[in-house]
Simulated assay, not measured.
Amino acid sequence: MNALKKYLGAVWLLLAAVVSYYCISIFGGKLSSGKQEDLVFGIIIFFILLPLVVTGLALFGYYCITNEYDEEY
């Protein structure tokens, strides 16, 4: 089970990198399109959703790799 957790931790870290690349490359055009509705959508994606999603995935992956879930209190 610990090996599976470490493997999935690496998958979560990789997924965090893919999501950040996808959001920056695809939704990056929304900030420079010149339309007001695209600008608002781009700001919401870049400054609210992207940090939340990428940080959550990266922290979960980090905790899986470092065996934080194995500690018993």
Rank of each mutant, 00 (worst) to 15 (best):
residue 39 L to W: 15
residue 4 L to W: 08
residue 65 I to R: 10
residue 12 W to R: 02
residue 59 L to T: 01
residue 13 L to P: 05
residue 47 F to K: 15
residue 2 N to R: 06
residue 56 G to T: 02
residue 44 I to Q: 09
residue 31 L to Y: 05
residue 49 L to S: 11
residue 63 Y to S: 10
residue 2 N to C: 04
residue 72 E to F: 07
residue 46 F to W: 06
residue 42 G to F: 04
residue 57 L to G: 00
residue 15 L to V: 00
residue 46 F to E: 01
residue 40 V to K: 15
residue 47 F to M: 13
residue 4 L to C: 00
residue 67 N to E: 15
residue 47 F to N: 14
residue 67 N to C: 05
residue 68 E to C: 06
residue 38 D to C: 06
residue 69 Y to Q: 02
residue 20 S to A: 05
residue 20 S to N: 02
residue 40 V to N: 14
residue 9 G to I: 00
residue 50 L to Q: 05
residue 19 V to I: 15
residue 70 D to G: 11
residue 40 V to R: 14
residue 1 M to F: 13
residue 48 I to T: 08
residue 59 L to V: 03
residue 44 I to R: 03
residue 71 E to A: 12
residue 22 Y to H: 03
residue 66 T to H: 09
residue 54 V to S: 03
residue 35 K to A: 06
residue 29 G to C: 12
residue 33 S to F: 06
residue 58 A to R: 01
residue 73 Y to S: 08
residue 23 C to S: 01
residue 56 G to A: 08
residue 59 L to F: 07
residue 22 Y to E: 04
residue 35 K to E: 14
residue 20 S to R: 04
residue 64 C to M: 13
residue 8 L to Y: 11
residue 65 I to H: 03
residue 38 D to G: 04
residue 63 Y to K: 15
residue 68 E to P: 00
residue 6 K to E: 14
residue 39 L to A: 11
residue 40 V to D: 15
residue 63 Y to I: 04
residue 45 I to N: 02
residue 55 T to V: 09
residue 54 V to K: 01
residue 67 N to P: 04
residue 46 F to M: 10
residue 39 L to D: 08
residue 51 P to H: 07
residue 52 L to M: 12
residue 28 G to P: 06
residue 17 A to L: 12
residue 54 V to D: 01
residue 56 G to R: 03
residue 28 G to A: 09
residue 59 L to A: 00
residue 66 T to I: 13
residue 69 Y to V: 01
residue 71 E to I: 12
residue 35 K to I: 00
residue 31 L to A: 07
residue 33 S to T: 14
residue 34 G to W: 03
residue 62 Y to R: 02
residue 49 L to F: 13
residue 32 S to M: 15
residue 71 E to W: 10
residue 21 Y to V: 01
residue 64 C to D: 07
